[in-house]
Design a protein around this nucleic acid. Structure first.
Length: 575
RNA sequence: CGGGGUAUGGCGCAGUCCGGCUAGCGCGCCUGCUUUGGGAGCAGGAGGUCGGGAGUUCAAAUCUCCCUACCCCGACCA
């Protein structure tokens, strides 16, 4: 393959609107172009990467026994009404009408379609377990697309759906997919973690997210020292502190704190350590109780975790923060002046709050705070729960050292769905006793286009992309110095190219009439892992120069042994 | 959806406040010559509804109104 016959579309300057490295580099290296917000063209070089990622996913899904299908991107509203999601899904579901004024949507996911297919085609438990997958374009009308294809509206996803006869079968399907996902991300060459995740509204018990670790990731995940405990931030438990509560050393006193409405103001204005302050957050109470509001207490330097709060019996689900008027009506003071002392509504404290002594908090009177508050002296010990997000350095719940918070890009998510969709859509098979049984479903997604962006986030330098060999658009770039004016160079370059291609490598010959610097810069930007430089200088000694994009020494190789040299660093599987 | 911004050849920008004459600059592109081991030099050239519409004015990229698109900050997700 020759550069003169390919659309390289590399850019010398940085595009104005690209913030993160992967977005910038995908534009500059000519992988993508934007068409509209969150909607992109994939150019020839980008396609080669996409196809390589897809090929790995396909191989591993097939190996795990899943069967490939292709489901429609356009889906009739009836299917979604049947599952209840036509109403539930919200504006992220792009809806439209055909010429007969029938409602349709662009599929953001395919549970409805696959469950209907399986319901019609599978009759017997003997046909189970079954797992169907596709690699296909999805559309989600994201509120705010950003970071290029990292969060696009149209994107390519591999989605798989497993069907089993019972919970045990689902467990096995799930485990087999978990292993397949590890194999996929290992092969692609990503540094990633499978983390326990909240299964959210879908209702299953088990869910894991696969995160590529990268500074620019949008998600925070918590890892223990040995990496065994790994959860997304929302899920990470913050157990009660092991050190006992210190003894009181101060008297409680009421202080004038005019205009102090924030923890920061309290810390700055009264030189309070932030660990001795309390945030009092008022939320809607669960219906049926005596009070309509309930307060949640976390330490000043901690954050309330909405998922945890919502799970409390006293708290309304979904979580709703109280409006200022509601707070004033119930307490007589506004946000910023609240605290546990003389609080007329029930409250729950985070474990770390219960371990505090001599702390400060609002007095439930405008512009006044109490300082030197102590539990079991100034007020009874509070009801406790785990309410906060963990912070970096918190002890790991599995006892293995401290938790680290790192950032990740979610590239995969596996779920145990249970019977939610089989029930809604009536998907049953006959069991051993000849009775209809609802199938237990799992669903498994990989953001294929996002994987490409994530790989770049993790593997780049100031000159451009450094592809993991397995997904590089080309294995090796051949850069001749003087292709158009030196016949020996030209012949040697063509010979090396033909030899490599015959051996199954994706070799790209840069036959443009450009100066060497231009060619080096482009090949580096595109991120081709290996480079063969062919010039008069080396040819005199009968040698070609072999460089690795990732760095390291240049080595000279004889023209006859280029394939061996390239094979050592190639990702395997040419086209 | 709320808040903040931007829109001028393919890309990056200046010009807009304070209206004025053939709308500039850098990169890229085309032609020629010279050059050729890390984004060459010289000469010539092509390419623009100044996001769209309406208005004010002798005159609008520039002022006014309306609309649209895109980007950034917040809640969701592969």
């Amino acid at each position: 393959m020759r550069t003169s016959q390919r659309l390289l579309a590399t850019l010398k300057e940085d595009p104005a609107d690209a913030e993160v490295a992967s977005h910038r580099l995908m534009l500059r290296a000519g992988l993508i172009r934007q068409v509209a917000a969150g909607i992109y063209d994939w150019l020839p070089t980008g396609m080669r990467v996409l196809r390589k990622v897809e090929a790995i996913i396909r191989e591993e899904m097939n190996r795990a026994g899943a069967q490939e299908v292709l489901l429609p991107a356009v889906q009739p509203a009836e299917l979604w009404r049947e599952s209840g999601r036509w109403e539930e899904y919200g504006p992220e579901l792009l809806r439209f009408r055909d010429r007969h004024r029938r409602d349709f949507c662009l599929g953001p996911t395919h549970e409805e379609v696959i469950t209907t297919l399986v319901k019609n085609e599978l009759r017997s438990y003997r046909q189970l377990p079954a797992n169907f997958y596709q690699i296909q374009t999805k559309f989600r009308d994201e509120i705010r697309p950003r970071f290029g294809v990292m969060r696009g509206r149209e994107f390519i996803m591999k989605d798989a759906y497993s069907f089993g006869i019972n919970r045990d079968a689902l467990q096995r399907d799930y485990e087999s997919m978990r292993r397949a996902y590890c194999a996929i991300f290992d092969r692609i060459g990503l540094h990633y973690r499978a983390v326990a995740a909240d299964s959210g509204s879908i209702g299953g018990d088990t869910s894991h997210e696969f995160h590529v670790l990268a500074e620019s990731g949008e998600d925070a995940i918590a890892l223990s020292a040995n990496g065994k405990y790994a959860t997304n931030l929302e899920m990470a438990e913050a157990p009660p502190p092991e050190t006992p509560r210190p003894k009181p050393s101060e008297e409680m006193r009421l202080a004038e704190t005019p205009g102090v409405k924030t923890i920061r103001a309290l810390v700055d204005g009264f030189s309070m350590p932030v660990e001795k302050t309390i945030k009092t957050l008022v939320v809607a109470a669960a219906p049926g109780g005596e009070h309509s509001l309930v307060a949640l207490l976390v330490r000043g330097d901690h954050e309330l975790n909405a998922v945890k709060a919502e799970k409390l019996a006293q708290v309304a689900s979904p979580l709703r923060m109280a409006k200022e008027e509601e707070i004033r009506a119930a307490i007589g003071a506004g946000p910023g002046s609240l605290g546990p002392v003389n609080l007329p509504i029930p409250f729950v404290a985070d474990h770390s709050v219960a371990a505090m002594a001599d702390f400060g908090a609002g007095a439930n009177i405008e512009d006044k705070h109490y300082f030197g508050i102590n539990w079991e002296r100034d007020l009874p010990a509070p009801e406790c729960a785990d309410l906060r997000n963990i912070v970096d350095g918190d002890p790991s719940p599995d006892g293995d050292g401290a938790l680290r918070i790192v950032r990740g890009i979610e590239v995969g998510h596996i779920f145990q769905l249970g019977t939610k969709y089989s029930e809604a859509l009536g998907a049953t098979v006959l069991d051993e006793d000849g009775k209809p049984a609802l199938m237990e479903m799992g669903c498994y997604g990989i953001g294929v286009t996002r994987v490409v962006a994530a790989a770049i986030e993790q593997h780049h330098d100031e000159r451009g992309i450094i592809w993991p060999p397995a997904i590089a658009p080309y294995d090796v770039a051949i850069v001749p110095i003087g292709f158009h004016r030196d016949e020996k160079v030209r012949e040697a370059a063509i010979a090396a190219h033909d030899r490599l291609r015959a051996a199954g490598f994706d070799a790209l010959l840069d036959d443009r009439d450009e100066r060497p610097g231009v060619m080096f810069a482009d090949m580096d930007l595109i991120g081709i892992p290996q480079r063969l430089v062919i010039g008069e200088r080396g040819l005199k000694r009968g040698a070609l120069e072999h460089h690795l994009r990732a760095g390291g020494e240049m080595r000279e190789v004889a023209p006859e042994s280029v394939c061996e040299a390239v094979a050592k660093h190639a990702g395997g599987g040419g086209d």
